[in-house]
């Protein structure tokens, strides 16, 4: 049994090829023994059934929208009881739990400056309940609540800019990462833990069922999100952009969209070209804003 298997174990119920366990074990590799607060969602369901827990760290799930507050409470208790040295406090929450229903609790946790690492596992929709759109679903994605139809090309609105929201709260360390680069996740978590106060890392995590890809495509597709600049990997320390993952020969967004069932309609829908152009504009803007092109 390797070290990280003692913190998160095999036998969990994730779909074959799911990105979440890759993200979780890469985070735990850096934290070591820690306290985990988890929102309701995919990760919770695959790992915390009574009598079948996959966790080797103290773990708590309360309700959908309060993981940031629960983590804040754990941190406060450890402080009051003189047990801060037991380990860091980490939140794992999905994109919907973070950007939609739980944003109030997250804002409060940031604002009060709790010493908590908040990890948003971004699989870009409510995947546990069957691919309903969230604030982090990208435009053009056909979800069960924003399906592509004769008129509409899937989700119309933009992906919410959570890192900017974290930065506006003066979170001490803010970064994005991807399951395509697990060692990068571990490095970023190690760096984050050097900061006392709130930290936010958003990890792009593949959902094979919701995105409509085969398990074998999971990592290549996640990599394409980074290589097209649709998912820029960026790192801020005390508000300053300190590092980005440079991209050599940035690829057109079509290469990322094509393999995924959630975007397939864009290539024949009357509004598809427009949406693809908009996604390319977002990618170009990311590349310019963060200086991604090598």
């Amino acid at each position: 049994m390797s070290e990280n298997m003692r913190l998160f174990g095999s036998g969990h119920g994730a779909c074959p090829g799911c990105g979440l366990p890759i993200a979780v074990k890469s985070v735990l590799e850096a934290t070591g023994p820690c306290f985990v607060a988890n929102s309701t969602g995919c990760l919770e369901i695959i790992s915390s059934q009574y009598g079948k827990s996959a966790w080797g760290v103290p773990y708590i799930h309360s309700v959908f929208e309060n993981a940031a507050a629960v983590a804040a409470g754990i941190e406060a208790a450890l402080k009051a009881l003189g047990r801060k040295d037991e380990g860091p406090v980490v939140v794992f929450a999905g994109d919907g739990a973070t950007a939609d229903i739980g944003i109030g609790c997250l804002s409060g946790m940031f604002d009060r400056g709790h010493d908590v690492l908040y990890v948003c596992l971004d699989n870009e929709a409510y995947q546990n309940t069957g691919n309903q759109q969230s604030g982090l679903t990208p435009p053009g994605s056909s979800t069960t609540t924003t399906p592509a139809g004769k008129v509409l090309p899937g989700k119309v609105k933009a992906k919410k800019d959570m890192p900017a929201i974290a930065l506006a709260h003066k979170a001490r360390y803010v970064a994005t990462a991807s399951v395509a680069f697990p060692r990068d996740i571990t490095r970023k978590v190690k760096r984050a833990l050097e900061f006392e106060g709130p930290k936010y890392i958003q990890i792009h995590s593949v959902c094979v069922t919701g995105w409509g890809i085969d398990g074998k495509q999971a990592i290549p597709v996640a990599r394409l999100a980074v290589e097209t600049a649709l998912y820029p990997l960026i790192e801020f320390e005390d508000g300053q952009l300190v590092r980005v993952r440079k991209i050599k020969d940035r690829k057109p967004v079509e290469e990322y969209l094509k393999p995924q069932r959630r975007f397939r309609h864009l290539f024949k829908h009357p509004k598809g070209k427009e949406v693809i152009a908009e996604l390319q504009r977002v990618a170009d803007e990311n590349a310019k804003k963060f200086g991604l092109d090598a």
């Binding site: 969990h12 079948k52 827990s53 966790w55 080797g56």
Partner: peptide
């Protein structure tokens, strides 16, 4: 409903 750690290991997937 507190669970013991790593009981998932008994689920052979």
């Amino acid at each position: 409903a507190v669970s013991r750690p790593l009981e998932s290991l008994k689920i052979k997937t």
